[in-house]
């Protein structure tokens, strides 16, 4: 149908309004999503930091647990424990056994030229104690005497350790036949 240019009405903005509305709506949605993802990102960053400190705490907890377990293993070692007529005594080491372990480096595979058996012994005790240092310190009754004796039973520290956890216990050191000395057991584990 022919249209007269004179009578044609000027174009109004009403035909563009639905498009503008849609664009505004889209922009709003994008903004909401953007903010939402920013919030998620903050949440993830916070969670990562929290996990980092939780992981560190867990590692410390495991090291403490290992220290306690190693201590208990040492306390019940038959190579050190007091025994008389197949009866064992709790929290007691025989002085003669301790001295033998130190003199012969029993827990470290022996002295002298290492043999295959020595290597096996070293591996065996390493599988029990891992990286650790185990010491027994005999305390003299009179501090002024300065007669404290120290026995290093096992010394296998980790060369570049990041953390060490010392634990302490009290044991009786029995010197045959019936003399008991007051001693401390120091176990340090490394990671």
């Amino acid at each position: 149908m022919p249209v007269s240019l004179l009578t044609m009405a000027p174009p109004t903005n009403l035909s563009f309004v639905p498009q503008k509305k849609a664009q505004i709506h889209m922009t709003e949605t994008i903004a909401v999503l953007f903010i939402f993802f920013i919030l998620i990102l903050f949440g993830l960053i916070f969670y990562a930091q929290f996990q980092k400190s939780a992981f560190k705490e867990k590692a410390e907890e495991l090291l403490q647990k290992r220290a306690t377990e190693t201590m208990l293993k040492v306390l019940f070692l038959p190579e050190l424990a007091c025994s008389e007529r197949s009866l064992s005594e709790d929290n007691c080491f025989e002085l003669a056994k301790v001295q033998a372990v130190v003199d012969r480096k029993l827990f470290e595979g022996g002295t002298g030229v290492p043999t295959e058996i020595d290597q096996e012994k070293r591996d065996y005790y390493f599988s029990i104690f891992s990286y650790a240092t185990i010491k027994v310190q005999q305390l003299s009754v009179d501090a002024a005497d300065e007669n404290d004796e120290s026995y290093v039973l096992y010394d296998h520290p980790l060369l570049k350790f990041t953390k060490s956890e010392p634990t302490f216990f009290i044991v009786a050191l029995k010197e045959a036949p019936d003399t008991y000395h007051f001693a401390s057991l120091d176990v340090t584990v490394y990671s």
């Binding site: 907890e61 403490q64 647990k65 306690t68 201590m71 709790d90 929290n91 007691c92 009754v141 634990t167 302490f168 216990f169 009290i170 044991v171 009786a172 019936d178 003399t179 008991y180 000395h181 007051f182 001693a183």
Partner: peptide, 21 residues
């Protein structure tokens, strides 16, 4: 978790102290 070790420490300390010659 250290309560168990502390309790054992108290027991062994007193037991050893009383046995000391």
């Amino acid at each position: 978790e250290k309560a168990f070790t502390r309790k054992g420490l108290a027991f062994s300390t007193l037991s050893t102290l009383l046995k000391t010659t």
